[in-house]
Amino acid sequence: MAEGKCATCSRYLLIVFNFLFWICGGVCIGIGLWAVLDPEIESYLRQLANINIPLDSILVAAYILIAVGSFMFFVGFCGCCGAIRESACMLGVYIACMAVVICGELSAGIYVAVEKGNLEGLLRKQLLGEVRNYTRRSNRTTISLDFLQARFECCGADSFKDYLSNPYYYNSTKNIYVPDSCCRDKGTKLTPPEPRNSTACQIEAKLQLNTTTSELRTKGCFPILTNWLDANSAILIGAVVGIAVIEILGLIFAVCLCRNRTIYYD
């Protein structure tokens, strides 16, 4: 067995932590495989969450979940088995993987802090692009914008007038000037939402009112979204720091166990 109270404590903590990590990885893989293999997944999600998600978006998310789950499963397996067997090889692989993850997270944090202004510009550009390409046909763009506009009660990137640059709405002959998700809804939580008074909303959009309206959401999503991110930045930073602390402790425990082990299985 490992020598010293520190090494013994590290061994048991590593076993518990990585066993849970291993289980989480297996769950992610299982959910991802279910989403890929089940032909009824699209309709099931629509019934479960009242959200119409295209199949290609579901498959992309499923493959990402499988990839992340596989990595978690592998790292958790190496850490758990390495701690049980006090295997230098498995502990070494675990230490290397955790070091790569921590360095990646640190690099990402520094990049976001340094490039915050440029990232906000890219976000605004992306929102403007999606607004200009929005149509009433259900696709990935319409679903993401409908959700964003309904969730944050906004319309367009900078304002509802951004839809004037959208050919579909600019050339519309049906007196439709903004999507239904730009109108105040009935609170049914449907996607796309059901407008409370679609006619009045479209009239207000046609008149391009700059004052507060009764049915049209005039504020843009970009300023509301950036304000929301700023307001919740402390929570996001706290969550990231908490995860990083756990990962660093796991790395320290693995190094401590690797240096003080007495039984060799390699």
Rank of each mutant, 00 (worst) to 15 (best):
R85P: 02
A113G: 04
E105T: 10
E130W: 02
C97G: 10
L119T: 04
N133I: 03
R124Q: 01
L122V: 04
A88T: 10
Q126E: 02
E120F: 02
E105V: 13
M90R: 08
M98H: 10
A99R: 08
G92D: 05
L123R: 06
E130Q: 13
L119Q: 06
E130K: 05
E105M: 15
C97D: 05
K125G: 08
R132S: 08
N118C: 00
L122F: 09
E115D: 13
E120K: 04
C97N: 10
G109H: 09
L91C: 07
A96N: 12
G109T: 09
G92K: 10
Y111Q: 10
N133T: 10
N118T: 03
L106I: 14
S87D: 01
E115R: 13
V131C: 03
I102S: 06
M98Y: 06
G129R: 02
K116N: 14
L91T: 08
R124N: 03
M98I: 14
A113V: 03
E105D: 09
E120H: 02
E86L: 14
M98R: 07
V112Q: 05
L128Y: 00
Y134P: 09
A96V: 12
A96W: 09
A99W: 07
S87P: 07
C103R: 06
R124T: 04
E115T: 08
C103S: 15
I84P: 00
E86H: 08
C89G: 08
L119E: 05
V114Q: 08
A88E: 02
R85G: 00
A108Q: 07
I110M: 11
L127E: 00
S107T: 15
E105N: 11
N133D: 12
G104R: 10
A88Q: 06
V112L: 12
L106N: 09
L128W: 04
E120R: 07
A113M: 07
E86W: 15
Q126M: 03
E115F: 14
I95K: 08
A108P: 01
G117R: 06
M98N: 00
G117H: 06
I84Q: 01
G129P: 05
V131G: 00
G92M: 03
E115L: 12
L127F: 04
L128H: 12
V101Y: 05
L106F: 15
R132A: 07
C103Q: 12
I110H: 07
L91M: 08
E120Y: 02
I95E: 05
V112S: 02
A108S: 12
V112H: 06
Y111W: 15
M90D: 05
K116S: 14
